[in-house]
Computed example of a mutant assay.
Amino acid sequence: MAVSVRDVAEAAGVSVGTVSNVLNRPEKVSAATVARVHDVIARLGFVRNDAARQLRAGRSRAIGLLVLDLRNPFFADLARGAEERAAEHGLSVFVVGSDEKPERERAAIDLFEQQRVFGMLLASAGDDLPRLRQLQQRGIPVVLVDRESPDAAVPSVAVDDVDGGRLAGEHLLSIGRRRIAFVGGPASIRQVTDRLEGVQQAVAAVPDATLEFVGTAALSVLEGRRAAERIAGRLASSRPQAIFAANDLLALGLIQGFVMTGAVRVPDDIALIGYDDIDFATAAVVPLSSVRQPAALIGATAVDLLVGATDQTGGPAHVMFQPELVVRASTTG
């Protein structure tokens, strides 16, 4: 039979309330009593029932983190940053990937709510503001991650993706490329449209520059390879001179596709830049230029905002980091 709190109290010669204080608020108990209770806990093999405690408290000590794609190293780094910071607050992180599908996002949010999570960090594709407000009204704090909040009442932490797109476009223009393509999609993902807007601004500032949009069904290596095959199959005179990929996975797929076809050399024929600066960017066949996001810092900051929201100290916070251009061989040769 499992050892109960009452068993510990009787063996230690203290009340059940004192044992509870030792476990949850030890500063309220004398050092000698804390030591005696812990000795009894060790001797009897008592294991606290956190599930029951959390049920009574109305929420767990787990944070629900929803990300677009668990296969993307950017989100793995973001999750690691969130986990490390959560541990400092005595919290854990429960990660779910949506595969960029709105129905999976809705199911994940429902699951988080059913599990009575401490709060939710949502790196999602859609803007379901009524649902977010409903969660807040039910006492579940929410922080939008890797995207700017469309509602001042919903905290967020993000990178300025419009500026990141502009940085990528200006870099490609600065090396003399004028026919530029943006490869990315689907357009329902806010990060994609923001990065596209940024490169559009850069191209619009140069009179003889043009921008082509090459849509993809997902932000994956496979979709990058498919896009490369379509581009490589065109006449050389009609191909772009440079490509800005919406993320590094697409860019790596583009490099793979160009190598496989043998029709396009990077950067000689087409200069290529990605977004996120994942670890694999430096290990590509042609080291990849990229726009860097501080993934781990984004995750850690999101946890800080979530904890602040539960403390209800001040209004919702919105943190915007600035992206950084990292130049490698895919644009410089």
Results as ranks from 00 to 15, higher is better:
residue 1 M to W: 04
residue 9 A to M: 01
residue 14 V to P: 11
residue 16 V to Y: 14
residue 19 V to M: 10
residue 21 N to P: 02
residue 26 P to G: 05
residue 33 T to F: 14
residue 40 V to G: 06
residue 43 R to C: 00
residue 44 L to N: 08
residue 47 V to R: 13
residue 49 N to L: 00
residue 57 A to P: 01
residue 58 G to E: 09
residue 63 I to A: 07
residue 67 V to R: 01
residue 69 D to I: 08
residue 77 D to T: 02
residue 81 G to M: 01
residue 87 A to W: 05
residue 96 V to H: 12
residue 100 E to L: 09
residue 101 K to I: 05
residue 107 A to Q: 14
residue 114 Q to P: 10
residue 114 Q to G: 10
residue 123 A to Q: 07
residue 124 S to H: 10
residue 125 A to Y: 01
residue 131 R to C: 05
residue 131 R to M: 07
residue 133 R to V: 03
residue 134 Q to L: 10
residue 134 Q to S: 11
residue 137 Q to R: 14
residue 143 V to L: 04
residue 146 D to Y: 07
residue 146 D to R: 07
residue 149 S to A: 12
residue 150 P to L: 14
residue 151 D to T: 13
residue 160 D to E: 13
residue 164 G to P: 12
residue 169 G to N: 01
residue 171 H to L: 06
residue 174 S to F: 09
residue 174 S to E: 12
residue 177 R to N: 02
residue 180 I to G: 07
residue 181 A to V: 06
residue 181 A to E: 12
residue 184 G to N: 12
residue 185 G to W: 01
residue 186 P to Q: 04
residue 196 L to R: 11
residue 200 Q to M: 04
residue 200 Q to E: 15
residue 202 A to N: 04
residue 208 D to S: 13
residue 213 F to R: 14
residue 214 V to S: 00
residue 225 R to N: 04
residue 226 R to F: 07
residue 226 R to Q: 15
residue 226 R to M: 09
residue 232 A to W: 15
residue 237 S to V: 13
residue 239 R to G: 00
residue 250 L to T: 01
residue 250 L to V: 11
residue 250 L to I: 13
residue 252 L to A: 13
residue 253 G to A: 02
residue 257 G to T: 03
residue 261 T to Q: 05
residue 261 T to A: 09
residue 261 T to Y: 12
residue 264 V to T: 11
residue 265 R to N: 04
residue 272 L to K: 08
residue 272 L to A: 00
residue 273 I to K: 04
residue 276 D to E: 08
residue 283 A to E: 13
residue 284 A to T: 02
residue 285 V to A: 13
residue 287 P to T: 11
residue 289 S to C: 10
residue 289 S to G: 11
residue 292 R to N: 06
residue 293 Q to A: 07
residue 294 P to Q: 08
residue 299 G to V: 02
residue 304 D to I: 00
residue 311 D to Q: 12
residue 317 A to Q: 14
residue 325 L to A: 06
residue 333 G to K: 12
